[in-house]
Simulated assay, not measured.
Amino acid sequence: MNLHVTKGNGEKVLFDAGKLKQALQSSGAGKQEQEHIVRLVRDELYDGIPTRKIYQLAFSLLKKESYKMAGRYRLKNAIMELGPTGFPFEKFVGRVLETMGYQVETGVIVKGKCVQHEVDVVARKNGEMLMIECKFHSDSLTKSGVQVPLYIHSRFLDVKAAWEKQYGTDLQYHGGVVTNTRFSEDATSYGTCVGLFMVSWDFPEGEGLKQYIDKSGLHPLTSLISLSKAQKQQLLEKGIVLCSELNNQPDLLREMGLPEKQINRILREAQNLIAK
C-alpha cells in the first residue's frame, strides 16, 4: 500500500505493516491475531492518517481480543499517565530498583561537598550507591537533550565527593538518569562517555524501559484498562504504582467503593499483566 501516515511530529512516511505487527507481537498477539488486526486496520487507512489514529484502531481491536494484550500494547501511554507531576514516575523507577535488590529512597535531600541537592532516587546495594534523576516529559515527542546529563553529572560529582568522605572510597558510586521518552544523540554520547547510568524508553538497545517492563512483568497500574483514569489517579496518590502492588492489596479497591465484579476484573487483568 502506497499510503502515507502522519507521525506525531508532522512527518509523513509510508505505512509500514511490519512495524504494526511488531508492536502487536510485543503485546503478546499471535501471528493469526496480528494478521487479522492488520487486515482490519488496513481497511480503515487513508492517505495522511495520523499514527495516533492507527494506534487507537489497533488498541480497540486488541481490547476485544484480550485485556492482557491491550494493556501491554498501551504501555507507552501507561508510562505517560505517570504524570503530570512526575512524582509517580519517580516512585515507579524506585519500585523497579527495589525488585533488583536495592534499598531505595525517593525525594531525598542529599548534602554534597559544596551544596545540597534534591535527588529523585537514592539506591543502595552490596557496596554500591546510585544517585538517579528522573526526567518525566508529558509530551512523548520531547527528548532529553545533552544539557540533562551535563547537569546531572555535575551534581553527581558534588554528591560523590561527599559520599566518599562519609562512606569511604571502597564503595562504587554511580550517577544516572531515567526518562520516560528518549535521549538526543548528544545526550546518550555524553552520558555514556562519563559513565552515567542512562535509561530511556528504548535505550540502551534491547534494555530500555519498554523491554525491561515486558521481560519483568513490572507493569505500571496505569496499564490497567479495567480502571478509570480517576481511579488510577486515586491509587497513584496512595503511592501504588505497580500492578503487582495492587494485586497484593485488593482491599484498597474495596476502600474505594468499587463493586466486587469490577474488583475481580481488575485483579484478573493485573495478574495477567504481571505474568511474564
Score class of each variant (00 low, 15 high):
residue 268 R to P: 02
residue 57 L to T: 06
residue 179 T to H: 12
residue 190 Y to M: 11
residue 25 Q to F: 12
residue 242 L to F: 09
residue 194 V to Q: 08
residue 271 Q to I: 12
residue 248 N to Q: 15
residue 52 R to W: 10
residue 185 E to G: 09
residue 135 K to N: 05
residue 197 F to M: 14
residue 197 F to K: 14
residue 265 R to K: 12
residue 99 T to A: 11
residue 59 F to G: 04
residue 54 I to L: 06
residue 226 S to G: 03
residue 234 Q to M: 13
residue 275 A to N: 15
residue 180 N to D: 10
residue 51 T to Q: 03
residue 171 L to G: 04
residue 124 R to V: 14
residue 270 A to H: 03
residue 225 I to V: 11
residue 238 K to E: 15
residue 9 N to L: 08
residue 112 G to K: 00
residue 23 A to W: 07
residue 206 G to D: 05
residue 181 T to Q: 11
residue 85 T to L: 03
residue 182 R to H: 14
residue 183 F to P: 07
residue 102 Y to A: 06
residue 121 V to I: 11
residue 183 F to Y: 13
residue 37 I to M: 07
residue 23 A to F: 03
residue 67 Y to I: 02
residue 159 V to G: 01
residue 43 D to R: 14
residue 264 N to C: 08
residue 32 Q to E: 15
residue 100 M to W: 13
residue 103 Q to D: 13
residue 241 V to A: 01
residue 195 G to Q: 09
residue 212 Y to A: 11
residue 260 E to A: 11
residue 188 T to P: 01
residue 101 G to P: 02
residue 113 K to F: 13
residue 167 Y to N: 09
residue 30 G to L: 01
residue 274 I to V: 14
residue 190 Y to L: 15
residue 274 I to M: 13
residue 171 L to I: 09
residue 95 R to S: 10
residue 167 Y to Q: 07
residue 39 R to S: 14
residue 228 S to R: 09
residue 166 Q to H: 11
residue 121 V to K: 04
residue 153 H to A: 12
residue 235 L to P: 06
residue 158 D to H: 09
residue 199 V to C: 13
residue 243 C to E: 01
residue 272 N to S: 15
residue 63 K to C: 08
residue 262 Q to K: 11
residue 68 K to R: 15
residue 46 Y to Q: 05
residue 119 V to S: 05
residue 266 I to C: 02
residue 20 L to C: 06
residue 158 D to S: 05
residue 48 G to R: 00
residue 12 K to H: 03
residue 228 S to V: 09
residue 231 Q to E: 15
residue 167 Y to A: 09
residue 231 Q to F: 05
residue 95 R to A: 12
residue 21 K to T: 07
residue 35 E to K: 12
residue 169 T to W: 07
residue 78 A to K: 00
residue 6 T to P: 03
residue 217 G to W: 07
residue 137 H to Y: 14
residue 157 L to W: 05
residue 115 V to T: 14
residue 263 I to E: 05
residue 258 L to Y: 04
residue 1 M to D: 08
residue 232 K to V: 10
residue 273 L to N: 05
residue 223 S to Q: 04
residue 10 G to H: 03
residue 264 N to T: 08
residue 63 K to F: 07
residue 42 R to C: 10
residue 51 T to S: 05
residue 72 R to F: 00
residue 200 S to N: 06
residue 243 C to S: 04
residue 205 E to Q: 14
residue 145 G to N: 13
residue 183 F to R: 10
residue 20 L to I: 11
residue 226 S to N: 04
residue 274 I to Q: 09
residue 155 R to Q: 13
residue 201 W to C: 06
residue 148 V to P: 05
residue 131 M to F: 15
residue 141 L to N: 13
residue 122 V to Y: 10
residue 104 V to H: 04
residue 210 K to W: 12
residue 156 F to C: 03
residue 250 P to F: 02
residue 188 T to C: 04
residue 26 S to K: 13
residue 75 L to T: 09
residue 209 L to N: 03
residue 139 D to H: 11
residue 250 P to M: 02
residue 109 I to W: 10
residue 147 Q to T: 14
residue 230 A to Q: 12
residue 83 G to A: 00
residue 228 S to L: 05
residue 209 L to E: 06
residue 149 P to I: 08
residue 96 V to I: 15
residue 66 S to C: 05
residue 268 R to T: 12
residue 250 P to S: 01
residue 224 L to R: 00
residue 178 V to D: 08
residue 145 G to F: 12
residue 13 V to C: 01
residue 65 E to S: 12
residue 45 L to N: 07
residue 154 S to L: 09
residue 59 F to M: 11
residue 72 R to S: 02
residue 39 R to P: 00
residue 89 F to Y: 03
residue 145 G to L: 08
